[in-house]
Design a protein around this nucleic acid. Structure first.
Lengths: 218, 218
DNA sequence: GATGATATACCCCAGCAGGGTGAAATTGAA
DNA sequence: TTCAATTTCACCCTGCTGGGGTATATCATC
């Protein structure tokens, strides 16, 4: 987690020149970070990204033309490896929801200080999703709204091994592959699968994986 | 948001005596925090809460008897004003999901340092939901699974008829049934299915339905 | 009018999936 | 200790699934 031997390329999308320049200055002035590009809007987003080739994108929401949410959607679809850190003054459910759905990796408020910003960039770069606690609180509330209720009935009935095998089925493995990966015989896998089908009241792999996902058995 | 003029009452549920005592010590030793009670398990949860009357609960997950998830569910149902901060070593989707659904206000990992812990307690007390970035990352991924998401890419590539057939596959119909319901020939269904597989880059019905659900194609 | 995408339909064939049955070793609970 | 559940393995058989190819009609677009 140290910033030593690390150089995180950051691209900034922010219409306010004052903030943009401040971010650029602190990034370039801190060891381990490079400002790969800073842009006042997302109207030539694809070009900007190809020019700057960033690891992490600092994305404002309110910008002239293409807004930060749309830009996030485009980036997560076309450049899935780029981490997108929303940084804004907005804290309303609608924007948070849209940003998260669009594929944002983090969501931090602008009044959190520059030290926190660098910390958040590093965390995003390392696969984390830094969020200001008040934002996280809203995400959790939204989450609780949308999360399907787990039916405790089916939760208990699958044995550990059965859950394991069901999970591999969800990942698209056929029975032979599952047997190899689990170091058990092909016929044993089939026995487990038959039991899973009976317990879930299904008759095919497709139905089983659908139920597994919908009821969050895996 | 300063800790001045503030006294946060914290109750600790943690089976490891070493950790429990460390938390108690740092809470009582820091201005603005009081350890209102520390308990090795949740087996007399209701009594513990009424005795200690906490603002924030530090909740471990793995405990003998009633585990932290169940306890969280009880507390959020019976004491909705108490903020529950999960603090654990577990970082798997299942536990995070369960904790969030049970009503946890935050989820922090144990290896994050005591300073961070106090910060998290304060943030939870103030209505925020402190989360370790790696945990937040998993929450966002789970969220994106359940939120109505539109992936423009794969959205376009499937023809209306193909989506229709894919939807029926997700509902557990076999090819013959789909043919009957759609008033087309069995072989036509198979032709469509083959095209769907090529477009989604999969090679089986299971994989196709998983992709269909995960990418919200149906 | 040519082209490409879509929708329809059929053939062949290897092979995996689904169902039934039986059985042994292990484990934990009654 | 005995019983139920779990995990392991094997065989048989039916038939649906997956992959290959080929073909026609429609429709929009160029």
């Amino acid at each position: 987690m140290s910033t030593a031997n690390m150089n995180i390329r950051v691209a900034i999308f922010e219409d306010a020149k004052l903030i943009r320049d401040a971010y650029e200055a602190i990034l370039n002035g801190t060891d381990g970070y490079t400002c790969a590009g800073s842009f006042p809007d997302c109207n030539s987003l694809d070009l900007c990204i190809r020019k700057s080739n960033p690891d992490v994108v600092l994305m404002d929401i309110e910008m002239p033309g293409t807004d930060g949410i749309q830009a996030t959607g485009f980036l997560s679809a076309h450049y899935p490896d780029i981490r997108i850190l929303i940084q804004t003054v907005f804290e309303d459910d609608e924007k948070i929801f849209a940003a998260v759905c669009a594929g944002a990796s983090g969501y931090i408020l602008k009044n959190n200080g520059l030290a926190k910003l660098l910390e958040a960039v590093t965390e995003a770069y390392n696969g984390g999703s830094p969020m200001t606690p008040s934002v996280a609180s809203r995400v959790l509330k939204l989450f609780q709204q949308f999360a399907p209720q787990v039916s405790q009935e089916t939760e208990m009935i699958l044995s550990p091994r059965e859950k394991e095998i069901l999970a591999m089925m969800v990942d698209g493995n056929d029975f032979r592959t599952i047997a190899e990966k689990s170091f058990i015989s092909y016929e044993t896998v089939r026995t487990h699968v038959k039991k899973i089908y009976k317990k879930l009241h299904v008759a095919s792999a497709s139905e089983a994986v659908v139920k597994a996902i919908r009821q969050r058995l895996v």
